[in-house]
Lab assay of single mutants.
Amino acid sequence: TDVTFHVNGRNLHLKGADEELLRRIEELIRRGADIEELEKAVKEWEK
């Protein structure tokens, strides 16, 4: 799945995201995470 999140005026584009990653990103956004936290979560998922 390709999806782009718009967070605090910045874009986080995910290519090939699975349901697990999407749920994790949505949860972080609900908690008020900043873009750096979201990018870190994506990097951890990519490993």
Rank of each mutant, 00 (worst) to 15 (best):
T1Q: 12
T1V: 15
T1C: 14
T1Y: 15
V3F: 15
V3N: 04
T4D: 15
T4Y: 07
T4I: 15
T4R: 05
F5W: 01
F5Y: 09
F5T: 07
H6M: 06
H6E: 15
H6R: 04
H6Y: 06
H6G: 02
V7G: 02
N8P: 00
G9V: 02
R10S: 14
R10H: 15
R10Y: 11
R10G: 14
R10N: 13
N11K: 13
L12D: 00
L12V: 04
H13F: 07
L14N: 00
L14Y: 01
L14A: 01
K15F: 10
K15P: 04
K15Y: 08
K15V: 12
G16N: 14
G16V: 05
G16H: 07
A17C: 15
A17Y: 06
A17H: 04
D18P: 14
D18I: 02
D18M: 03
D18Y: 01
E19S: 10
E19W: 08
E20Q: 13
E20A: 13
L21C: 05
L22R: 04
L22T: 05
R23F: 08
I25H: 00
I25S: 00
I25Y: 00
I25F: 04
E26F: 08
E26V: 14
E27G: 11
E27T: 09
L28Q: 05
I29T: 01
R30V: 10
R30N: 09
R30K: 12
R30T: 10
R31S: 13
R31Y: 10
G32L: 04
G32Y: 03
G32Q: 05
A33I: 05
A33S: 08
A33Q: 07
D34C: 08
D34T: 08
I35G: 02
E36C: 07
E36D: 11
E36R: 05
E36K: 05
E36W: 06
E36L: 08
E37G: 08
E37Q: 11
E37K: 08
E39M: 09
E39D: 05
E39T: 07
K40G: 11
K40A: 12
A41Y: 15
A41F: 14
A41G: 03
V42I: 11
V42Y: 03
K43E: 13
K43L: 12
K43P: 02
K43W: 12
E44F: 08
W45V: 05
W45Q: 05
E46T: 12
E46N: 12
K47A: 10
K47I: 12
K47T: 12
K47H: 11
